[in-house]
Design a binder for these strands. Structure first.
Lengths: 243, 243
DNA sequence: CACATCTGTATTGCATGCAGTATTGCTTTT
DNA sequence: AAAAGCAATACTGCATGCAATACAGATGTG
């Protein structure tokens, strides 16, 4: 079994992102330690990690509070992802992608095509697309071969709603319209892959940067519709949802 | 007095960046706790923070090791800073900088001009320039008004050699040549400020991105000259210095 | 009736004890 | 003399005790 700290960290992060705590709520060590079946020490370590991740903030009087997020902060984090992924795509294009890299990318594209060719999307299709989308974005990050860049993207993706697939589950609700936006996003994947293959660095950078506009749009769309809280519970952490 | 954890964290980070530990060396809790006058608990918390910062890595057998850095990783981190600061400069330009912002920027420019107008640079001049340089870069980051971006830059700057002024102390050794490069860098500051004032977003972005090439050049220069270890002790953490 | 103060309670931050495990150095054998 | 095995040591990870502190509720006063 992994360490207590690792287990507590994963479970606690999950609870927060599932919206089990209210924004601004105080996180008391003892109840959480009891709930997760450990002592206070691993919980304290996990709090410290969550603070670095930005999910939790230290209270002036000691202890930690659940962080509140504004829609502006989310849009900011998505914009940062666009910038960093744009840099990654440019680096891949400039270095010249390997055959193996292009092969793996092609598998993602094929998988996306397969899902989107279906008439309607069930839950499994959506899950497949999300898995593929994460893989696609991760491939580019790793393909860039820049450790600091990979780190920066990873840290930014720890913020809720910032990761590539954070708002994708929403597409399920919006019926035909959702599928069309998914198709649009996947066409951008195709273009981006082509740009990298042709070593068109500037084009790849711009495409990757533009690509996050869809995530941003999804976020705005979701915040306007409280019923999407069921699909993306973490939106409970956003404090200016309706205002 | 601040908490034990905060104190231990600061002191320990300082020791590591001063090169007091060898790269790859194991960090034992008890000796450090004794050395810094606390118990093991705050030291453990500090280790955890240093791991997030990237100064220390978990050992597979438990505990932590001093992280080794390669010159490639340093160059990567500097490139990431260029990209992020480029984005920040572009945002400032696009939003239109306030009068107050331009005023503060101008003070930095004037201070740099003042220092560089002197015949030769003594220690105080160098310190003034470094302080001004940090202030200049920080102004742009804050002026961008993007919290996630500020966070990403801050986290990246925790890596040794990545911050704007990390390699500046080196300019002291290189005599007249060093002053000329400093002058060159400061001209870039002038151009960047002008671009932001004129709301030339693309130009500002490119200038900020290009600006880090000087830092990269300084890094390469320093790694070729072991005598610079006196000025930038953290270079002891670089493991491919001579090879 | 409102406000301030005081007391009891809960919680944090830190130190330390304990069990499990890796490591080191010595001894023994080939 | 080198290598393997074993024992002693040291270290990590976790639980818990304790003191200091913040918080809440009740009580007293203006």
């Amino acid at each position: 079994m992994a360490s207590q700290v690792a287990r507590v960290l994963v479970q606690l992060r999950d609870l927060i992102l599932k919206g089990e705590f209210a924004p601004g709520e105080r996180l008391a060590e003892i109840p959480i330690a009891l709930k997760l079946g450990s002592s206070r020490t691993p919980v304290r370590l996990a709090f410290s990690s969550l603070e670095q991740e930005g999910l939790v903030e230290p209270s002036p009087t000691g202890g930690y509070l659940i962080k509140r997020f504004t829609s502006q902060e989310i849009a900011d984090a998505i914009a940062v992802r666009g910038n960093l992924e744009g840099m990654a795509a440019r680096l891949v294009a400039e270095h010249g992608p390997t055959c193996e890299f292009l092969q793996l990318l092609q598998e993602c594209l094929d998988e996306g095509d397969r899902v989107l060719n279906k008439r309607s999307l069930d839950y499994d299709d959506s899950a497949s697309y999300i898995e593929m989308n994460d893989r696609f974005h991760q491939l580019i990050v790793e393909g860039a071969g820049n450790a600091a860049l990979a780190r920066a993207i990873d840290l930014n993706n720890r913020l809720p709603f910032a990761p590539p697939s954070a708002t994708l589950p929403m597409q399920q609700t919006s019926g035909e319209e959702g599928r069309e936006w998914l198709w649009h996003a996947h066409q951008q994947h195709h273009s981006l892959a082509q740009a990298m293959e042709r070593r068109e660095g500037t084009r790849a950078q711009w495409l990757a940067e533009e690509h996050v506009q869809i995530a941003r749009m999804n976020m705005v769309y979701a915040l306007e519709r409280p019923e999407t809280l069921r699909l993306i519970p973490a939106f409970k952490l956003v404090t200016d949802a309706v205002g």
